[in-house]
Amino acid sequence: MSAVSEPMSPRQRATWAVILGVCIILIVIRCFIGEGMGKVYVEPTNLQFGELSADTWKSMDQSEFATFVASNPDAATEQWTQYDSVPPSAYFEQQQQGGGGSIFLSWPRTIGLWLAAFFTLAIYSFLYRDNPFYKFAESVVVGVSAAYAMVVGFWDTIVPNLIQRLLPQFAHDHLTPGMTLPTDAAQFNNLIFLLPLALGIMLLCRLVPKGAWMSLWPLAFIVGTMAGLRIVGYTEGDLLSQVRDTISPVYVPGADTSTPFMAVWTTIWSSVAACLLVIGVLCCLVYFFFSVEHKGAVGGVARVGIWYLMITFGAAFGFTVMGRIALLAARFEFLFDDWLWLIDPNQKRALVETVSMLMCL
């Protein structure tokens, strides 16, 4: 059963209305201070390429490209315009010099910036309580992520691993023109890929109630195959590596031999670390050995194992929290730097503009 949030009371609706009104007023005021806020400027760059030989292309500037076309009228060429984001300070300098430059405001990227700010604030609004803005942002994130994963899966998995092998000519003509067509013998060997095609179609039968039983076969194949692959990977990557590190010598020569003191010092610390590793592994194994009651010496060793486990879990949790704090700081920097233009840690805008804006505030 899906959890249904309680409807907001009139007081909560009034609170949200006041908060939104204040935010909108502050944003409107900020838009008219200095050069405004939340703008993305771009500079177009013309790119020209000429084909010197088969599958060999060269990037050329405007004059070199014109000379190449004049001397090689039948050669293949490609050219397009690339729009690169530039800091607002470049646009401000262009305007101070009288304008007329190539830098201009990009409305699509500016709208994207404002949408990113809106969705960021909508997600953070859940800190107060569940609300329509959060639900809308959550639905958009889930929908866009699912669509993106589907498109990436089609082009990165289905096209190269299935369509290019079973229908190479069709893939070459309509999907991936740059692919190399296989020989007749290789194409005959690719018929084995009809098996995953059949399993994929059977998996889709889960959408049909009467044919849902057919999806159990490919599902069992997927689970069994992945379990076999994972157990081999975990055995080699985790179990064997931990066993190898545990049975390493407890005496480890120091890596820093620049001076006799540093050689002795690094040797001591490396050996102590190796001893602590062995002691920790043995104590943790004793803690999880429940055939003997944890009393006396066994209980003391198990207690040391608990300390090792708590230190490990605490370090892992702290590392996770710091990673989330870093993400939070990045979003705050996006809001205050890229959107509101209240800070400028990377000097992307003119210093005079930042100072004048702060004085107006």
Results as ranks from 00 to 15, higher is better:
M1D: 10
V4Q: 08
E6G: 10
E6T: 15
P7W: 13
S9N: 08
S9Y: 09
R11W: 11
Q12I: 11
T15N: 11
T15S: 11
A17F: 14
V22W: 12
C23K: 06
L26V: 13
I29Q: 09
C31L: 13
F32C: 13
F32R: 14
G34Y: 01
G34V: 03
E35C: 01
G36R: 04
M37Q: 07
G38L: 02
K39G: 00
V40S: 00
T45R: 13
L47Q: 06
F49K: 02
E51W: 03
L52Q: 10
W57C: 03
D61Y: 06
S63E: 14
T67N: 15
P73V: 09
A76Q: 14
T77D: 07
V86Y: 00
Y91E: 00
Y91F: 10
E93L: 14
Q95E: 14
Q96P: 03
Q96C: 14
I103L: 00
P108G: 00
I111K: 00
I111D: 00
W114V: 00
L115D: 03
A116Y: 03
A116D: 05
F118E: 02
L121S: 04
I123C: 04
Y124D: 04
S125R: 05
L127Y: 05
R129K: 05
N131C: 04
P132R: 08
P132L: 08
F133S: 05
Y134F: 14
Y134D: 02
V144K: 01
A146E: 00
A147E: 02
Y148K: 05
Y148C: 04
M150W: 06
V151M: 08
G153Y: 03
F154N: 02
I158A: 10
V159H: 05
L162V: 13
Q164A: 08
R165Y: 07
L167R: 02
Q169S: 09
F170K: 05
T176F: 07
M179F: 05
M179L: 11
L181H: 06
P182L: 06
A186V: 07
L194F: 12
L194I: 13
L197P: 06
L199C: 15
G200I: 10
M202K: 11
R206C: 10
L207D: 12
L216Q: 15
W217H: 09
P218Y: 10
A220L: 11
G224T: 10
T225M: 11
G228M: 11
R230A: 12
I231G: 01
G233W: 14
L240C: 03
L240K: 09
S241H: 09
Q242M: 07
Q242P: 00
V243Y: 06
D245M: 07
T246R: 03
S248E: 08
G254W: 01
T257V: 11
M262E: 13
T267M: 07
I268Y: 07
W269S: 08
S270C: 08
A273I: 08
L277Q: 05
L282M: 12
L285T: 13
F289G: 04
H294R: 09
A302P: 00
A302E: 00
R303D: 05
G305Y: 01
I306M: 15
I306V: 15
W307A: 14
T312H: 12
F313W: 14
A316Q: 14
G318I: 06
G323R: 14
L327A: 11
A330R: 14
D338I: 02
L342N: 02
I343Q: 00
P345Y: 01
P345F: 02
L351W: 10
M357F: 07
M359T: 13
